[in-house]
Design a protein around this nucleic acid. Structure first.
Length: 245
RNA sequence: AGCUUUAUCUGAG
């Protein structure tokens, strides 16, 4: 069964969902019942392929009580609903998971932060972020970056920066993505002075700016109506040989 | 054997 499931996964990763399905049929014909892993693989592949409706059908059918869905299966389902934009379904699957006593993992938390963040429910996202501690999960750089991003999108750059600071206090070195995300939070809020400072910190911290770094910096200036500085930054980017995204 | 290769832009829902 492991061999069949792995083969199905391999087909899916090549975008050959149909080939995967043939293996699936053969597997069933040989008397090997599909298990939770097989289902997760299919749901994941269908969702990545944009076939959300089919993914949802499999998910719904798997709720008939005959499956012992585990943490990864629920994570896969929640992610599929997030990607399809069905945030309400994502939440309801999460609630189901909790009420059935399935342990959330850090990935569950990170995905749910995105679900709430994209749904504009920043307070819920924060709640999720904080709940990680009580679940005994240690927040990673992704969790912080995710939260920083949503604070930023809500125009709350000061709270974003508090998290950015806390991340460093907890011994995590922000990488390029974290810096870009924090920079973007300042950009949305038009805080160009803070953005400039962070831009310098980023470089001295050993992270070379990329096109997204400059995009954020330029946006910080334009949001603040500092158009000359925006143009300067754009020139500096070109001079450094970075092509715009 | 399966789940965030997470950040930036525009539009649709």
């Amino acid at each position: 069964r492991v061999v069949y499931s792995s083969a199905i996964d391999a087909y899916c990763r090549c975008g050959e969902v149909n080939g995967a399905y043939q293996i699936y049929e053969e597997m069933v014909k040989q008397g090997h019942a599909p298990n939770v892993v097989t289902i997760s693989i299919f749901v994941n592949a269908l969702a990545k392929d944009g076939k959300y409706h089919e993914a949802e059908c499999i998910i719904e059918n798997s709720f008939d009580g005959s499956w012992e869905l585990d943490t990864i299966a629920y994570n896969t389902y929640i992610k599929a609903m997030l990607d399809s934009g069905k945030l309400y379904s994502a939440v309801s699957i999460y609630n189901r998971m909790i009420s059935l006593g399935v342990q959330p993992s850090l990935q569950t938390v990170n995905t749910m932060i995105s679900v709430y963040g994209q749904g504009g429910k920043l307070d819920k996202a924060v709640q999720m972020f904080k709940s990680a501690q009580s679940l005994g999960l240690s927040i990673d750089e992704k969790s912080y970056t995710n939260m920083i991003s949503y604070y930023g999108k809500a125009g709350r750059s000061q709270e974003a920066f508090i998290l950015f600071t806390k991340m460093k206090e907890n011994g995590m070195r922000p990488g390029q993505i974290s810096y870009n995300t924090m920079l973007n939070a300042y950009a949305i809020a038009g805080r160009h002075h803070e953005a400039e400072n962070l831009f310098e910190d980023m470089k001295s911290d050993g992270h070379p700016p990329d096109s997204l770094t400059y995009l954020a910096l330029i946006r910080a200036y334009t949001e603040a109506h500092e158009f000359c500085k925006a143009e300067e930054a754009a020139h500096r980017m070109q001079k450094e040989g970075i092509s715009p995204s």
